[in-house]
Amino acid sequence: MAIFTIDDVEKTFKSGDVSEKILKGVDLELNEGEITALVGPSGSGKSTILTIAAGLQKASGGQVLFEGHDMTQMSQEEIRKIRSSEFGFVFQSSHLVPFLTVEDQLLLMLDVAETKLNKKQQKQEVAQVLELVGMAHRKEAYPSSLSGGEKQRVAIARAIIHKPKMLFADEPTASLDSKRSKEVMEIIRNLTKTLKITTLMVTHDEEMLPYADRIVTMKDGLID
């Protein structure tokens, strides 16, 4: 069953008098608990469709339906609320908050998502999730003392700590070596399957494709 529907989405970028159509009417349905990998050459529009789906930029046309609600018609505040409570993000760079410890990064996300957990429950939840990503022993560490792989594990933990319905991952393994990439993908797959999180992932790395349930190829702003 489709939890997320992208319907005839277009995106045109304008620079002065010049305009370029990056997305030319993309249709895509994401089923609950499924991992969908978006692949395609550079400039095909895969990152653009991911950021539009995640509510990080507006579409020029078409509809983006999350649980039947059209996000293109929502206010910025409504989209922010969905992003904070229903979506999780993993980016190419981990983008951790430099002055927060690993544990605090996750506690912050629980606060932002306005979960109803009390402080003690929040700490227990953080401990569990850190255990799942194999980072429990580094909970007091700051990002500056973590390796690339460790940072990305923490970023994944931050993305799923509030049990979102959707996970958006933009090249989550691009900055990691092959071994670390596989470890990170295994974590993403295990967690999203366990928590039934629907995942849309952009990747260039063919080695990551076996971890996806479905592979969608984009070319010239359209689903191929």
């Binding site: 922010r80 992003r83 979506f87 993000f89 980016f91 908050v97 430099p98 932002v112 998502a113």
Partner: peptide
């Protein structure tokens, strides 16, 4: 700026 952007992306008001 980058940090604020990320915090906004994850839903911080």
């Amino acid at each position: 700026i980058g940090l604020y952007g990320i915090l906004k992306a994850i839903g911080v008001k």
